[in-house]
Design a binder for these strands. Structure first.
Lengths: 209, 209
DNA sequence: ACATATATGTTAATGTCATTCACATACCCT
DNA sequence: AGGGTATGTGAATGACATTAACATATATGT
C-alpha cells in the first residue's frame, strides 16, 4: 500500500472508529458522543464511517461488545485467582464487576442503557452474557463444595447479579456519599453477599431437615 | 384573560412543558426526546420554553423531580397498608419500587441516568431521597420489633436498596427472559430479601451470643 | 498486464435540533 | 393611563445524523 493509498483509504477504519468512539466516550460520557467527533478523531470525513456502521447505534453497539468481552475475561481471571468453590471466588467476581463498570463508566451506559438493551438479540447473546455464565459456574462449584448441590443455581445467580449490579449502579450514580458518607461499596457488597448466602444456606437446611 | 391573550401567552407553560415532556418520554423514551417536540406539543414556538428552563437538562430535571415525588408517595402508601414493623412492609416497598420504575420507564433513565446524577445536589436532596428514607424508617421499625435494635439500619437500607434496584434494572433491561424464561422478578426480589434478612439475623445472633 | 467490479473514501446536500437574539405582546402595579 | 416586567414569536447560528452523487483504491478474473 502506498502512502497516497493510506491517505485516501484508511485501511482499518472500522476498528479505528471503535477505538475513537471508546476513547471519546471514556473522556466525555456516552451522552454527548457524536459520530462526527469520532470520525474527526479517526481522521476521516463524517460520511466515511457509514461504510462500516449502519448508524450511530451500530457503532455504539460495537463499543459495547468490547465492554462485554472485557467484563467476562476479567471475571474469569479474578475468579481463577481464588480457590475453586470458595466464597472468595464469588466475591471476587462481584468486586470485579463493580470495579469494571465504575472505572469504565463509558461502557456502563452502553451495556445497560437503551442501546444495550435494544441490541441484546439472540445473535449476540453468548458474547454479551458470557460474564453471567462465569458467575453461574462459580456458584455451582461453591454449592457443590458446600454439599448443597440441589439448590437452584441459576435462580441464585440472578439474585446475586441483581445485588452486585445494584451496588454498581449506586456507586456509579455518585449518590451514595449523600446517604452514607465514607461508605465502602465493595465492602458492603461483600458483606451483603455473605449475608445473603448465609440466609440461603439456613433456608436450605430447614427445607431438607 | 381574553381568548387572544391565551393564544399568545400560554399562561402555564412551565407546567405544560413538564407534562408534555413526561408524555413524550413515556411514549418514546428519554433518548430521542427533543425540546422542540415538547414545545410543539405544548403549542408554542421552540424558543418559548427557554423562558422557563435554562436548557433541556433543566426541563428533564423537573420531570425527574415528579418521578422522585411519585416514588416516595407510593412507597409510603404501600408501606402503610402493611402491618407496622412487618417484613411484608419492607417487601411492599420493594415491589412498589420495581413496579414504579418498570411502568414509568421514562422516569428511570432520568432518575438514574447522567441527568439525574448530575443534578443530585444538596439542594434537591430531600425531595429526591425521600423514598430512601421511607425504607430506612420501615427497616428501623422491623428490627425494633425483632428485638434487633442494635443493627446498623442505614447500612442495611443501602444493601436492600441495592438489591431491589438491581432487580429493577434487570427487569427493565428486558434481558432476564434470555437467562431465565418465565422468571418472576418481584417474586425473586421477595425471596432474595427474605434470604438476606435471615442471613443478617443469623449473623446478629452469632455476634451477640 | 488489464479491465472491471467492489470496497472505501470525499464533498455537498437535507432536515432536525438546541440555543440565542431582536422584537412583540400581555400582565401588573402605581 | 403608563411604564416595567414577564412571556411569546420568528429568524438566526452552528452542530449533528444521514444520504446521494461522485472519486479512487483494491481485488479478481481473464
Amino acid at each position: 500500500m502506498t502512502a497516497a493509498a493510506r491517505a485516501y483509504h484508511h485501511g482499518d477504519l472500522r476498528n479505528a472508529m471503535i477505538v475513537a468512539a471508546a476513547e471519546l466516550i471514556e473522556e466525555s460520557g456516552s451522552l454527548g458522543f457524536s459520530m462526527a467527533d469520532a470520525a474527526r478523531r479517526a481522521g476521516v470525513s463524517t460520511a466515511a464511517p457509514y461504510r462500516h456502521f449502519r448508524d450511530k447505534d451500530a457503532l455504539l453497539d460495537a463499543v459495547a461488545q468490547l465492554g462485554f468481552l472485557g467484563l467476562s475475561e476479567s471475571a474469569r481471571r479474578v475468579r481463577d485467582a481464588e480457590a475453586p468453590g470458595s466464597i472468595e471466588a464469588i466475591i471476587a467476581i462481584g468486586r470485579n464487576y463493580i470495579s469494571y463498570v465504575t472505572q469504565k463508566a463509558a461502557f456502563y451506559d452502553l451495556m445497560w442503557g437503551d442501546i444495550g438493551a435494544r441490541t441484546f438479540d439472540a445473535e449476540g447473546f453468548d458474547r454479551k452474557a458470557a460474564a453471567f455464565f462465569v458467575l453461574v459456574e462459580t456458584l455451582q462449584a461453591y454449592f457443590e463444595k458446600q454439599g448443597m448441590g440441589e439448590v437452584d443455581v441459576l435462580d441464585l445467580s440472578i439474585k446475586l447479579w441483581a445485588l452486585v449490579h445494584g451496588f454498581s449502579a449506586i456507586a456509579m450514580s455518585g449518590k451514595l456519599p449523600h446517604f452514607h458518607p465514607g461508605a465502602d461499596v465493595p465492602a458492603m457488597m461483600e458483606a451483603a453477599t455473605r449475608s445473603f448466602l448465609r440466609g440461603v444456606a439456613v433456608e436450605q437446611q430447614q427445607t431438607t431437615a
